[in-house]
Amino acid sequence: MNTGFSPLRLVFGNHSPSMRIALISTALTIVCLIWIYPFLWMVSTSLKSNMEMFANPSLLPQEFAWDNYRRAWVEANMGRYFFNTLIVTAGSVILVTASTAMLGYVLGRYNFPGRTAFFVGFVATVFIPQGFTIIPVFELLSMMGLSANLFGLTLATSGHAMVVFVVLFAGYFSQLPKELEEAARVEGVSFFKIFWYVMLPLARPMVVTVVIMQVLHAWNDFLLPLVVTLANPAIRTLSVGIYAFKGEQSIDWTGMSAAATISIVPVVILFVLLQRYFINGLAGAIKG
């Protein structure tokens, strides 16, 4: 019998498995509630009046001040920033997923002149931080006349993070079996149709992973939108818009909290819905 002591046994003693699960669950509940305290505080503050916020430290507001949300959405322009962020995120997800899947597919499965050069180029640039290239990227956008609109921001957001996805896709495609593809080719299916109908569906775990990682990246991105929108407040994203709250003399904490709450709701919903696919997709992706 196992008589060695384990930390769990020290804490929980010799309880039955279900008892242990109950104890672990309780412990985790407490840890998680402390963990998300900042969010509880944020949501609670977003429902208090500016007066009450400093006077009442309790998480439960005395009366709900829905006006904060109206102020954030209308006066602080969060509605507009929300829309901007949505466009940039959706646009960059489509651009990045499509272009990196195709690029990774060709790089990962075919040998052609120039392949090694491209591959080395991508792997070598995976670890270049954003700060390194922000100046030329900004200049390039200005030169192309795209520094003042959402299209330019979408393009740059896509370009900045794509390298690692190319490498991931190439790795994933390279380990898929050859048989299906060859059978399709014998049947006379064209190059593009093989990719679209045979190979891409096989790479679904990787596609899901890339979509979620790009959503997180675009929704979180800060340096690029900050620099691009320095002169164009109209195309600010949520991150930059909320940051702008801080620049003012006295911070409108309750309005800011309402804006912040608005900004996290869509991504939280997305994660809750897609969580299972995300973990399975990642697992499938790193297995390769």
Partner: peptide
């Protein structure tokens, strides 16, 4: 290899503009 290159085109364009060119430009600046 026209299909291969064609399929890589969007990705290479994006990477060329926002990854490779900026690195070279930064060194130049």
């Amino acid at each position: 290899y026209r299909f291969h290159y064609f399929m890589m085109l969007p990705g290479l364009l994006l990477a060329g503009l926002f990854v490779f060119y900026p690195i070279l430009a930064a060194i130049f600046y």
